[in-house]
Amino acid sequence: MSETERPRSNTVRDPVSDPGGTVETGGPFPTPRKTVRVPGGRRPMTMSRREDLHGRLLVGPTVIVVLLFAVLPFLAVALFAFLDVRLVDIPRLYIDNLVFTSENIAAVWGSPRFWSAATTTVVYAAASSAGAVLVGLAVALALRRPFRGRGLIRALVLVPYVLPVVAAATIWKTLLNPGYGLVNAVGVEWLGWAEPIAFLTTTSRDLGPLEVPVALLCVIAFEVWKTFPLAFLFITARLQVVPGDIEEAAQIDGAGKTRIFRHLLLPELAGVMALLAVLRFLWSFQNFNDIYLLTGGAGGTEVLAVRVYSELVVRANIGTASATGLLMTGMLLVVVAVYAWMIKRERA
């Protein structure tokens, strides 16, 4: 609505502030019937202008909530990262007594713990997103052709994805418990392990020439287990629209299944798999719940999200927590930018 019109439309009785007055119009919008009474009468709104107004009004509530509880807080992070502020300062926090400093960013940037957490995060996110997409692909291919009971198995495979994360983590912790957990019981009783392994607190363990990061592998396995169903769903949906006739023709021509997969299915699936890998990477990169619940960041599993949390809660320092969060978001943006650039280059 243009500026010049605004005062005039205010002379129309505002139905929102006058409930009951215009009930017969069926909504809180001025109707043409009302406007003709105004001297120098405004013409009824055109269809497209009404559409524009209605669209904005309908999206309004959502926009307000999202602005207040997501966009504004994000701007606040950028502010807090440059403030000398701790948890105890909150009651005395006013806009006009802020103390600016660049020490938070410098302290975080210079801290070896931050960089080791960053490395762990990248390894964790890359391994679990690749794992989730590959496992999802394998299961989607295995369940591609119909058989008796396929519907039930498909539904069953989705269970880890809908399981509350706290319940899933509690069950996994019990499974891996050194005292009475099933995995250690099987290992000691049947596989001849010398002693139970404390999976979630062991940083690394020599396995012949290899040094295995036990706890990190466990949290990666948990993340793959919890998220591959989503990859499975998306790949299955994409498989269903792969045209069948080319595949049939290839089969008649004598192409084997691996060749059909490599030359026909894989090119079709590549787009959705790349998208899934990027999305899973972005989500795993910021994952807090799974790791905090399983290990609390112990055993070489401290990721950036856990660092943000411990800066905030353990060290009670809002400034460094925000600085860590800001740098973390910056890294995510780099990933998003690279992906966008690659998509653009491919389209060009």
Binding site: A70, L72, P73, F74, A76, V77, F80, F285, Q286, F288, A305, V308, Y309, L312, I318, A321, S322, G325, L326, M328, T329, L332
Partner: peptide, 9 residues
Amino acid sequence: LPGIVLAVP
């Protein structure tokens, strides 16, 4: 946006 980053502010 990372939930943990929004959580601080």
